[in-house]
Amino acid sequence: MMTVPQTSASLRRPARIAINAGLVIFIALYAAIGFLQPNYLEPGLFMNFLRRAAPLVILACGQLYVILTGGFDLSMGAVATLVVLAASILINGDPDTTWAVIGALYVMGVSIGLVNGFVVAFLKVPSIITTLGTMLLVNGLALAWSGGAARGDLPDNFRNLGRLVWRDVSVIGTLPLAAVVLAGFVALAWFGLNGTVYGKRALAVGDNPRAAELAGTPVAATRILAFVVSAVSAVTAGILLGGFSGVSVNAGEGLELQAIAACVIGGAQLLGGRGSVWSAVFGALSLFALFTLLNLLGLPQALRDSIQGVILIAAVGASMWRTRRRN
């Protein structure tokens, strides 16, 4: 029998190293960007980088909650698309309705998260199937509602959330609003996992749900809340996306897999039990830095997928190899 202190120590150590892995990859990639295009090292362009990376980082934070509890959320991309389309149809260019509509979008997001959570927790449908179902469902709804093409219009006060940049800020020069939203969301996500008991519960449920249940953890509630957080992050990311890339029927396409990839590159463990907010944040920043770098290198758009695939396998393979060697 293994003694308890031993297990917890061996659990904690890889987590810390994994965090560093995400950060190291990000710094290496960003250094390469800076080498090719030195002005990316100026605060202004870095802020711009953060602004464009914001939706992916936010999605990755939400996805992390679900991954920690041992599941997946494939419906995020569809939710983000729905948010963009719904916002432009509902607001339709009238700035006075913006805040009410944003409220409605969050209610919608929370209800999608609740559906995902309830189906997984009580109907016992594996999350990969559940969220595949809601992905099809939400995508279909968004397309049926909009008639398959973008319509309506987003007013400036909505688009500013993703687009507005404050100039002449001291020290950093420019400050995009999206970067503030990003920082706020990451701080909340960090607090949720580190400042409340929820983080421990999520890890426990992801590591061993039966043991967590016997120890008194409300397993179903923990899972459901994770899906709600994930859906809320998808709504937030959708609002930012609507701000700077405009309205389109494939605004959120493929983002769910990028978010999962980001968490994994950052060192979170699929099927639960290991990871932190920093794995999501640095994983997502690494992935986005990779896209930027490949863009600067002038590689064809399509080859980016390939390189993303190589990095994904390599990052996970490397962390597996380290863990194996340690044991």
């Binding site: 016992k124 449908v125 594996p126 995508n139 992801g206 749900p209 039966r210």
Partner: peptide, 30 residues
């Protein structure tokens, strides 16, 4: 039925079809 609504129904049916036999699962799924 129009193509988009078809997708909605498909999504719902995927979940329902799995739920029918998954709901009897003892223990937890992720």
């Amino acid at each position: 039925i129009d193509a988009f609504l078809k997708q909605v129904l498909r999504g719902a049916i995927v979940i329902a079809a799995v739920a029918v036999h998954a709901v009897r699962t003892k223990g937890h799924v992720a």
